[in-house]
Amino acid sequence: MAMVGSNAKRNRWLGLYIPLSMFMVFLLFPFYWMLIVSLKPNSELLDTSVNPFLLFSVTLDHYAYLFTDTDFVRYTINTFVVTIGSTALALVTSIFAGYALGRFRFRGGTLMGALIFLCYLVPPTLLFIPLSQIVADLGLYNSYWSLILTYPTFLIPFASWLLMGYFRTIAIDLEHAALVDGATRLQAMRHVVLPLAMPGILSAGIFCFTLGWNEFLYALVFMSSGEMKTVPVGVVTDLIRADVYFWGSLMAAGILGSVPVAVAYSFFVDNYISGMTAGATKG
């Protein structure tokens, strides 16, 4: 027994603690640097006589500057509105699209699936110019709608493919049973399929949210006048002035723009993981 115990202990170290700490170092190291810079007084930032990774005095000035000298709060609200709006739109349309692609056999189905996927291959660095024409024609410039309606172009392909996979994993018999019992197709979908696919929908939502949260180019071009900026665009325009960077505040914005999201994800993450499973494995 003693042998087994020490073996298990060794395995625990080899299989968990050592690799886990290596991942922590690699993945959180740049993040640690962001945190340090956001708390470091500027005089220390240019001081090459001391270890740059250590803090000798702590200042919250950079955070304060974000709130007093930029519209950071407003940018955060904008980002939330845009991200939640586009995520919701992409999710709802993708649920139907994914259901159709995953459940129905119809002429052109495979082709449509492929075409939707192909949308993913068109680079935004090309699309933003003709898109700006559409955004202008629809009179959406500098409104939330400009992003809520354009973000789904890169969210829908991803989300509908993911959801297509989930719907395929849910036994079709359950649905048939509901239909035989007199439910409509929509009722069957709502009461039988959606609850079972909920974890998958949640995970697709988290993916969409992250992609929208990070977007820069469309936000820069379609919505960046006055207070109507997202966090990435707002902090870059407010905190980089010609050849001078406000490093501390930029990094502070990075911290504030990610930690709350990470915390929110930690509540979802278990659901999210079990949700991914169903769709992913049979996709």
């Binding site: 110019i129 700006s132 955004v135 202008a136 071009v221 006048s225 325009t237 010609a242």
Partner: peptide, 25 residues
């Protein structure tokens, strides 16, 4: 009157897309 100040390298794409769209500043 509203003024938008934008980071140097981002000025050009903003202007280009405004010209293409025929709308903007």
């Amino acid at each position: 009157v509203t003024v938008d100040f934008i980071n140097w390298p981002d000025l050009q794409p903003r202007t280009t897309s405004a010209v293409q769209a025929g709308a903007g500043p």
